[in-house]
Amino acid sequence: GYRKEQERLGIPYDPIQWSTDQVLHWVVWVMKEFSMTDIDLTTLNISGRELCSLNQEDFFQRVPRGEILWSHLELLRKY
């Protein structure tokens, strides 16, 4: 899972600490993992702090059909 990727690349476990690059890395990883092609990366060119401050409605406004990303983010925030 993504935890291995975080360990390998030194990405903080807590998404709130992610840099913009780390947010984009996570988005690309999830897209590959779940064979998603319809995500516009430019809408998530934000820091982890900004990402974690979005509520579900705001998130889906930025990322239509972003349910998998949202669920994955929720999982990461719990651990």
Rank of each mutant, 00 (worst) to 15 (best):
T42M: 11
L73G: 01
Y79K: 15
Q56E: 13
R77I: 06
V30Q: 05
M31H: 08
M36H: 07
Q6L: 15
I39K: 06
K4N: 12
F59W: 06
M36S: 09
P64W: 03
L24C: 14
G48P: 03
T43C: 14
R49N: 06
Q56V: 07
E5V: 10
H25F: 07
D58T: 11
V23K: 02
R49S: 14
V63G: 06
T20Q: 12
M31F: 10
W29T: 04
F59Q: 03
L51R: 02
S19P: 02
K32W: 04
D21I: 05
I11E: 01
W29V: 01
I46D: 00
F59H: 01
P64G: 08
R3T: 08
I16A: 13
I46T: 03
I11M: 05
E50N: 06
R65W: 08
L24K: 12
L44R: 00
P12Q: 00
D40S: 09
M36Q: 10
P12V: 03
L73K: 04
E67M: 08
L75R: 13
E67Y: 07
V23M: 01
D40W: 00
P15V: 06
Q61C: 10
T42D: 14
S53R: 11
M36N: 07
V23I: 02
M36V: 13
E74H: 15
G1A: 10
S47V: 04
I16L: 13
I11C: 04
R8C: 05
I11S: 01
V28I: 13
T43Q: 13
W26T: 00
P12D: 05
V28T: 15
R3L: 07
P15Y: 01
S71F: 09
W18M: 00
F34P: 03
G10T: 04
E7I: 08
L54A: 00
E57N: 07
G10V: 04
L69S: 01
D58M: 14
R62W: 05
N45Q: 10
D58A: 12
D58I: 13
L69Q: 01
I46R: 01
Q22L: 01
L75K: 09
L41H: 11
E57I: 08
R49L: 11
H72G: 04
E5N: 01
Y79A: 13
D21T: 09
R3N: 04
R62V: 12
L75F: 08
N55W: 02
T37W: 09
T37S: 11
T43P: 14
L44F: 09
C52E: 04
K4C: 06
G66K: 02
R62G: 04
S71M: 08
V23C: 04
F34L: 08
T42F: 06
I68G: 10
Y2F: 07
M31K: 10
S35I: 02
S53P: 04
I16C: 15
P15S: 02
H25K: 05
I16W: 13
E50K: 12
R77L: 08
G48H: 05
C52P: 00
V23Q: 01
L73C: 00
V28R: 15
I39V: 15
T37R: 12
S53G: 11
L51F: 02
S35R: 12
Y79H: 14
L9S: 07
E57G: 12
L69H: 06
D58N: 07
L75H: 15
L9P: 02
S53N: 12
E50W: 03
N45M: 11
E57H: 13
S47A: 08
G66F: 02
K4V: 12
L75E: 15
R77P: 02
S19H: 10
G66S: 07
F59V: 02
F60L: 15
D21P: 10
K4A: 11
R65V: 08
T37V: 09
E33I: 02
W70D: 02
C52G: 03
G10D: 07
D14R: 00
D38S: 11
D14T: 01
I39Y: 05
S19C: 04
Q61S: 14
S71I: 08
E57A: 14
Q22P: 00
I46E: 01
R49W: 08
I46A: 03
T20S: 15
S19E: 05
R3Y: 07
P64M: 00
T42V: 09
F60N: 07
Q17G: 10
L73A: 02
E74A: 11
S53I: 04
I46V: 09
G1D: 10
Q6I: 15
W18E: 01
W70P: 00
K4M: 12
E7M: 10
Y13D: 11
D21W: 07
D40E: 09
I39G: 07
E57C: 11
E74P: 01
I39E: 09
W26G: 00
L44Q: 00
E5S: 02
E5H: 05
T20V: 13
F34Q: 13
I11K: 00
G10W: 04
L54E: 04
T42A: 14
L69C: 03
G66M: 00
S35T: 13
V27R: 04
M31N: 07
V63C: 14
E33L: 04
R3A: 06
E74D: 13
W26S: 00
L76Y: 03
P64L: 01
Y13C: 08
E5R: 01
K78I: 14
I39F: 14
W29A: 03
R77C: 06
K4S: 13
G10N: 15
E74I: 05
L41T: 11
S47T: 15
V23E: 00
D38H: 11
S35L: 07
V27A: 14
G48S: 02
R3C: 07
R65S: 13
L41E: 08
S35F: 04
L75Y: 14
F59N: 02
Q22V: 00
L44S: 02
Q22C: 03
Q17W: 10
P12E: 04
V23R: 03
F34Y: 14
C52Y: 04
L41R: 07
E74W: 05
E5C: 05
F60T: 12
Q22F: 02
H72S: 08
T37K: 15
F34C: 11
V30R: 03
L51T: 02
E33S: 10
N55R: 13
W26M: 00
D38N: 10
L76K: 01
G10I: 03
S35W: 05
Y79F: 15
P15H: 02
V27L: 07
V27T: 06
W29H: 04
L41F: 10
I11Q: 00
V27Q: 06
I11P: 01
L41W: 09
E50G: 03
G48C: 01
P15T: 00
L51S: 01
D14K: 02
E57S: 12
L69Y: 06
S35V: 08
D40V: 04
Q61G: 13
R62C: 08
